[in-house]
Design a protein around this nucleic acid. Structure first.
Lengths: 223, 223
DNA sequence: CGCGTATTTGAGCATCATCAAGCGCCGTGG
DNA sequence: CCACGGCGCTTGATGATGCTCAAATACGCG
């Protein structure tokens, strides 16, 4: 997002920005806690979660490097932010950032378009949560992580794609609206059918990108 | 949203705006169809839906009067828009609207804040679709329709709230990620337990707003 | 009044949740 | 170096919730 700024503006922003580091599994910002800062993510992955009073949880978003964390023009964030991996942030005071948005029309434009894209992304996920079965959910998750973490290779259909999932099985379940046992079983099914290979820890190898894509985009053809 | 405009700007906008009327159940805009206009809703309710190649459908948003329809800064909308009831729109060419956004900072600001609110709303729905059971989904839907259609009375807990649901059972199911039979059964359960009264057609009377609220916000206490 | 559509109701079933072990990896400490 | 314990993950058995298929009923509209 900073690419929209002139060198001068960037310098000004840098003067008021500061870095933060977090270990994995750390709470960053909570519901009903006044947050007076926002940030862009330099490295790592952040979970945005919502939960019910009886403990049921839903991850409503995963933030990757270059994504934005925070809620300008509002004091309280409606979700909890937690690190999934180790994270580095580049933070600004919310007030400074809002001023910058107001002064720099291009930045506000960019921010607006991002917000609109986030609406679209959230609505895509609605379709997944409301209408897809466990198999399709897990396939879609793997594909979406592949795209996020390996944008270049994801396009290249031929080669095998090896990478580390950024989250635990529990988090996958909370993102997909499933239980972790179900996620585990579906991963096994994908393994058995030769579509993926699960390595040590969170490592995963996608052997057949097209098979995953068929499960996600053409559920009728895939089965 | 038009309240942010000066009389002069409003006049200018009116010069390029035009009205449209649609009967219930009519397609307004489709996926991959280039849409060169956008609109605010004057009356009626619009469904935004996404669907899979095998026919499974998910309603990803309901638009009420004063809501905005369209996707500025992008040619193609990622969803299908259909009327749920009879609808009146106030339309502008997309290009005109984009120009207006650029020229009028307050309007853009308002539009941005709306977009951010929509992200939050979509994420609330993620929690509902991913983690709530049929009972809670239906209760949440009724409550949310009550709030949308009767904002004043919804606050007043005492009196009984009578209104018409704006959508069919099928639509309710598509919005809640359920089958219409399940929706029907859950409505009956709510009726049997004295929380609501179902009248002719889509009429509904909420007898116990607090009971609904308990099901939605304190699921453990409610059962 | 009669037809088509929306809704309700019923019976059986599939998927995914739940409960309960068991396994493997890893860091700690003996 | 190995035993121990914790945690995340896998695997299995069982069951409930919500889906599917099917039919009846109610309703809106000509």
């Amino acid at each position: 997002m900073c690419r929209a700024l002139t060198a001068q503006q960037l310098a000004r922003l840098n003067r008021v920005s500061f870095r933060k580091r977090y270990p994995p599994g750390q709470l960053i910002a909570g519901i009903d806690v006044t947050e007076d800062w926002c940030a862009t993510i330099l490295s790592g992955v952040i979970k945005l979660t919502k939960s019910l009073s009886d403990g049921r949880q839903q991850i409503v978003g995963l933030l990757f490097p270059s994504d934005f964390l925070g809620r300008p023009f509002r004091v309280d964030s409606p979700y909890i932010a937690e690190t999934a991996t180790a994270v580095q942030l580049c933070c600004f005071s919310r007030q400074h950032f809002e001023e910058l948005l107001h002064e720099h029309a291009e930045l506000k434009q960019l921010f607006l378009e991002r917000a609109l894209d986030e609406v679209d992304a959230a609505r895509d996920w609605l379709l997944l949560l409301g209408r897809k079965n466990a198999q399709e959910k897990v396939a879609a998750f793997i594909l979406s992580m592949l795209r996020r973490m390996r944008p270049a290779e994801a396009l290249c259909v031929e080669s095998q794609q090896q990478f580390d999932l950024p989250v635990s099985r529990t988090d996958m379940a909370d993102y997909l609206g499933l239980r972790l046992e179900t996620v585990s079983r579906q991963l096994k099914r994908l393994h058995t059918s030769g579509v993926i290979e699960t390595g040590l820890g969170r490592a995963i190898t996608v052997r057949d990108v097209q098979a995953l894509e068929r499960m996600v985009f053409a559920p009728d053809a895939a089965r």
